[in-house]
Computed example of a mutant assay.
Amino acid sequence: MHEAGDVNLPGSAVLLDVELECLLPAHAYPFNQPGAGTNPFVYLERLEKWSDAGTVLRFIVSDTPVNAAVILDPIRYREQDGTNDIYCTIPLRGYRTLSAETVEQKATGNQARAVETQPEKQTAYTVQAGDTLSGIARRFYGDASLYGKLAAANGICNPNRIYPGQVLKLPDADKLPAARAAEQKPLSQKAAEATAVTFDQTVGQFKFQAGPAVKNLAQEALNRLEG
């Protein structure tokens, strides 16, 4: 882990990193310890099991202060002189226990997210392409739900319809009027109500006379299309 960069340990360069060369005897030599066996593969099998399992061992040198925790890298061994003795290379790597620091974190729960930025302060705003009243209310009041009141403050019957170039007044939040009810009549119906219809019996035809309000409705419809 240290070499991969996941853990940086002070003094890791002085951890034990040595290779022991040893003989696993196949005969009862005079230098054998009393009771030592003469089947070298018994010792070799135990060493390989420790190496494969990553078992933490103690490397102790008698009459010295050496007493270190180690793990074994893969064991290398060979026979070289026809005696059936096994010459063994045992790589020892210093071992150090890693400890993780636990940081207690307080549960936040399902709390409402605070406004990330402070609302802008302006008295008027010119609508841009792609704007919505809820987005404008969030930008200047920090609360998108005030879009209905903002519409009422600007005489907008349908808060879902604004158009680029339209100038909106931005009164203080506490001075916004109550939101109006949604517009009920479509433009076509309002235009029909503003148009006078008569029947000319001499020619047998209906005549339509548009009132002044129709012109305003036509302009409103054009503004909506452009928006």
Rank of each mutant, 00 (worst) to 15 (best):
Thr102Phe: 14
Thr108Trp: 04
Ser62Tyr: 02
Arg93Ile: 12
Asp73Glu: 15
Asn84Ala: 07
Pro74Leu: 11
Thr89Gly: 02
Glu79His: 10
Pro74Gly: 11
Ala112Lys: 04
Val56Trp: 08
Val70Pro: 03
Glu101Trp: 00
Thr83Asp: 09
Arg113Pro: 07
Thr97Val: 05
Asn67Asp: 12
Val115Thr: 15
Thr83Cys: 08
Ala114Lys: 15
Val56Gln: 13
Ala53Leu: 13
Lys106Glu: 13
Arg78Val: 06
Ala112Thr: 04
Ala114Met: 12
Arg96His: 10
Ser62Val: 04
Thr83Leu: 08
Arg96Ala: 10
Thr83Met: 09
Ala112Tyr: 06
Glu116His: 11
Thr89Trp: 01
Ile86Phe: 02
Glu79Lys: 13
Ile75Thr: 06
Thr83Trp: 06
Asp63Tyr: 00
Val115Asn: 14
Leu98Asn: 11
Glu104Tyr: 12
Gln80Thr: 10
Thr55Arg: 04
Ala114Pro: 12
Phe59Ile: 07
Gly94Thr: 08
Ala114Thr: 14
Phe59Pro: 01
Ile90Phe: 03
Val66Asn: 06
Gln105Ala: 14
Gly82Asp: 01
Ile90Arg: 04
Thr108Asn: 00
Arg96Ile: 09
Ser62Thr: 05
Asp85Arg: 10
Lys106Cys: 13
Ile60Gln: 11
Asn110Glu: 11
Leu72Pro: 03
Asp73Lys: 15
Pro91Met: 10
Gly82Glu: 00
Ala53Gln: 12
Ile86Trp: 02
Tyr87Ile: 06
Val56Thr: 14
Pro91Lys: 04
Glu104Cys: 03
Ala112Arg: 04
Pro74Arg: 10
Thr108Leu: 00
Val70Asn: 04
Tyr87Arg: 00
Ala69Asp: 13
Leu57Pro: 01
Asp73Thr: 13
Gly109Gln: 04
Glu116Asn: 11
Glu116Trp: 11
Thr108Ser: 03
Thr117Phe: 14
Ile90Leu: 06
Ser62Met: 06
Gln80Lys: 13
Asp63Pro: 00
Ser99Pro: 01
Asp85Ile: 12
Glu104Arg: 11
Gly82Arg: 03
Arg96Lys: 13
Ala100Ser: 02
Asp81His: 07
Ala68Ile: 02
Ala114Tyr: 14
Glu101Val: 08
Glu116Pro: 05
Gly54Asp: 06
Pro91Trp: 01
Val103Ser: 13
Ala53Thr: 11
Val115Ala: 14
Arg78Asn: 12
Thr108Val: 03
Ala69His: 13
Gln80Glu: 11
